[in-house]
Design a protein around this nucleic acid. Structure first.
Length: 439
DNA sequence: TAAAATGATTCAAA
DNA sequence: TTTGAATCATTTTA
């Protein structure tokens, strides 16, 4: 505590007898009046106070007691208190009021929102549920992960509370200790209650900055926990086969414009959900359909060669479906995939290679218009259909020549064909197309 | 177990 | 707002 020097220093400025003036008083005070005698008395006291540190402990103790019992002590003490109040405290008092720390408020809000500092049970689960809802993840099948998450969260919560309590207790202990000390000292030093108050607030500020660090690290821990458990990317589940097939079917049958409308997405999602329900999987959401198509488009475009075989397969399949639908009306409502392996196999033909080549070159040369993309697609589908009807070509062949990306234009982008009405339903496309182009 | 596949997110641009 | 591109984190496959 550096109060003593400051205290002494402050006297000089106020006109009180400070130590630089002291010897003069002592020397001049010989033929003094009554006032001069009192002055000398005060000077004497101050002198004694000044030199008290030079003395041995016992001596100092005795001197202290003597000073305490001095008749001038209360008056002098009051004056010192007053001076100190006027100088030191008024200077500090200006910066006493500080606004609540925005950083701390943010941390508090977050901890409350995450259910760390709020009420015990409800807050935590509510926050977890809200987080799950916000992350857009599946709602049904994550209870296991959630319980794990909640366990960890309550662990953090417990640590946080214990630490907080510890700090609070330490703060209180330290505060009372300092207060006692100051009260004790206020008997011999000019310490006003206001000053004690100020000291307490300083202590509290220090401790609250420690608490803020605790809150900060707790927030970090919660964030890490959240990203660990609630980040949808971390619990990625592959769609099941049927769902992927439905999506692929749509994609390749609308290769010229693989941008399903909102309704189409809804419909696809529903369709996947129906197919998927029986396999005990979660259902798809339109958002997921959008994601799927976004990924598919970009990945297809990036490496068309890699997807050609797949493209062939699905094109073949839709063609077969169309064929079935047209030639056997009764089978029109049959499930979308009659027999995947079989149909794909039957389309692996060698004889038709040149035919397709010619068709493709034709398409490539003459159908670059924006609006015909879908028609080109239809023609190809129809051709496949025709071939499938012509007979069972089954021998080995160049699958990579079968299906070219007519929909992709020179820029590498898809032609923006105006979405035909048939686009909304994958199964409907080939069927309707078939009726008007097969001669 | 490394590499490939895949669903989801982020971010800039249109 | 939607899309493309890049990227992440996980799952599947070789």
């Amino acid at each position: 505590m550096d109060e003593q020097p400051r205290l002494m220093h402050s006297h000089t400025g106020v006109g009180m007898a400070g130590h630089p003036g002291l010897p003069q008083h002592m020397q001049e005070g010989t033929g003094g009046t009554d006032g001069d005698g009192r002055k000398q008395d005060i000077g004497d006291i101050l002198q004694q106070i000044m030199t008290i540190t030079d003395q041995s402990l016992d001596e100092a103790q005795a001197r202290k007691h003597a000073l305490n019992c001095h008749r001038m002590k209360p008056a002098l003490f009051n004056v010192l208190c007053e001076i100190k109040e006027k100088t030191v405290l008024s200077i500090r008092g200006a910066q006493e009021e500080e606004p609540p720390d925005p950083q701390l408020m943010r941390l508090d809000n977050m901890l409350l929102a995450e259910g760390v500092s709020g009420p015990e049970k409800g807050g935590g689960s509510a926050a977890a549920a809200a987080a799950a809802a916000a992350s857009g993840g599946a709602g049904a099948d994550n209870s296991a992960e959630h319980s794990d998450y909640r366990a960890k969260l309550s662990q953090i919560r417990q640590i946080y509370h214990t630490e907080l309590e510890k700090y609070e207790q330490a703060c209180n202990e330290f505060t009372t200790h300092v207060m006692n000390l100051l009260r004790e000292q206020s008997r011999t030093r000019p310490i006003s209650p206001k000053e004690i108050e100020r000291m307490v607030s300083i202590i509290h500020r220090k401790f609250s900055s420690i608490q803020m660090q605790l809150k900060q690290s707790t927030c970090e821990a919660v964030m890490i926990l959240r990203s660990r458990f609630l980040d949808a990317r971390r619990k990625r589940r592959n769609f099941n086969k049927q769902a992927t097939e439905i999506l692929n079917e749509y994609f390749y049958s609308h290769l010229s414009n693989p941008y399903p409308s909102e309704e189409a997405k809804e419909e696809l999602a529903k369709k996947c959900a129906i197919t998927v329900a029986q396999v005990h999987h979660r259902s798809l959401k339109p958002t997921q359909v959008s994601n799927w198509f976004g990924n598919k488009r970009i990945r297809y475009k990036k490496n068309i060669g890699k997807f050609q075989e797949e493209a062939n397969m699905y094109a073949a399949r839709t063609a077969v479906n169309a064929a079935n639908a047209s030639s056997h009306g009764s089978q029109a409502n049959s499930p979308s995939t009659p027999n995947s392996a079989g149909s794909a196999g039957s389309f692996n033909m060698s004889n038709s290679g040149d035919l397709f080549m010619s068709v493709q070159s034709l398409n490539g040369d003459s159908y670059q218009g924006a609006q015909v993309g879908a028609n080109v697609q239809s023609q190809v589908d129809t051709l496949r259909h025709v071939i499938s009807q012509t007979g069972g070509y089954s021998e080995g062949l160049t699958a990579n020549q079968m299906y070219s990306p007519q929909g992709i234009n020179a820029n590498g982008g898809w032609q923006d064909a105006p979405t035909p009405s048939s686009v909304t339903s994958p199964t409907e496309g080939p069927g309707s197309v078939h009726s008007d182009t097969s001669n």
